[in-house]
Design a protein around this nucleic acid. Structure first.
Lengths: 210, 210
DNA sequence: CAGGTATTCAATAAATCTATTGAATAATTG
DNA sequence: CAATTATTCAATAGATTTATTGAATACCTG
């Protein structure tokens, strides 16, 4: 094989994999699958896609071998093929957040109305946890918490938070986390909790980053 | 802004940046720019593109803010915007090499005819260097060597290697490196040197990875 | 400022990607 | 086995991406 043909082949394959990620819905799906396994229907619901359309996008990811499937009865569960897929997603996310002013602006504007406090970084949370003066709260759906969570974190899914406030100690500071920097569960939790008089911030990133 | 509109905006921007990488030529350009700055003409030459076409691809990367430019006289030099762009490229490369059997196969087939020895990893080279029994050889063009190289590496651009063999000590093992895992300069060097009786292997990855 | 060189722009046709729709398939339940 | 449910497939129209071509622009040299 000639040198040029070799390179065309290699970069062509590389681009094919990259293209399989280069779509808003598929990126959202990858971000979701970083939490846990989900069925096609669940994925469609979470991402506001029709089931057929979600399925098509999942086929694209599967063809690129970025996701794996397991059948359980009539349900087919999708998951990320491995941790490197998450790392690639995160590397793209990092570049995008850093290079693209729109993303930061949109995120800030979305959160501003709640006059939210500055999010805490992963490093910051580690320090707070070592000093022991913090309650860590996971507001993702229970299944995702069970699939993995920050050690000693409490689980109160966001939609039940208002009714379960009394489970949270009033004295300690609370740090809430959810799926990732683009997940709004933690923002909603911060709004609810600060209104209820808690000292609360959100973790900047999400559990998979942790 | 509604939750769905927020997500559509965020993932849309993310996908736009990902799309700017999702093309074989643009990936090759990013891989090249990881070495040093290059003018449009140089980029076009290295990647076998017409100048106009290379320019268009560079515009796409520039619009995504993945590259920066400097004008020097009539030349315009492009460079990667920062190290995170290289990290994103590498994360994609890692996933692709791991998930896509074609890439490994093509790379192996291309190298096999030379009955090349197994490449050494970055870790492996570090160990060899500590024991001091290795000559490290950089076969990239001189400008790239000058832009940055492995400490104590010799520089002999691949096209001059055959004529400058006497500069290399015969006794020590040689490890050659070049631009990256898809760069064939190191493979050519291994072929030349092993034919000349040297004990030689290539570094699996390239200088930017180091 | 005229001529030359490096780069970008603009227009276009071919190829590829996307969402939608409705039908087909595969496993489970009764 | 028929009915049900979850998922995939197939066809298609509209949108986007790409390479090519030739012209336009920006800067340098003399």
């Amino acid at each position: 094989m000639q040198k040029r043909a070799f390179k065309d082949k290699i970069y062509g394959e590389l681009a094919a994999i990259t293209r399989s990620l280069a779509n808003p819905h598929r990126l959202e799906i990858v971000d979701l699958l970083a939490q846990a396994d989900f069925s096609v229907e669940q994925i469609a619901e979470q991402t506001n896609l029709s089931v057929a359309n979600a399925s098509q996008h999942l086929q694209v990811l599967k063809a690129a071998q970025l996701v794996d499937v397991t059948r359980q009865g009539t349900f087919i569960y999708y998951r990320l093929a491995n941790a490197n897929v998450f790392k690639a997603w995160r590397a793209l996310r990092t570049v995008a957040m850093e290079r693209n002013a729109t993303i930061e602006k949109v995120a800030r504007d979305f959160r501003k109305p709640d006059s939210a406090p500055e999010p805490v970084s992963i490093e910051g949370l580690r320090r707070k946890m070592q000093s022991g003066k913090v309650t860590v709260l996971d507001v993702r759906p229970e299944a995702e918490y069970e699939n993995g969570h920050i050690a000693d974190a409490l689980s109160i899914p966001i939609e039940r938070l208002s009714r379960r406030l009394k489970e949270l100690p009033k004295r300690k500071e609370i740090v809430v986390y959810c799926r990732g920097p683009f997940c709004v569960f933690a923002d909603e939790a911060v709004a609810i909790l600060s209104k209820a008089g808690y000292k609360v911030t959100r973790l900047e990133e999400g559990f998979p980053d942790w």
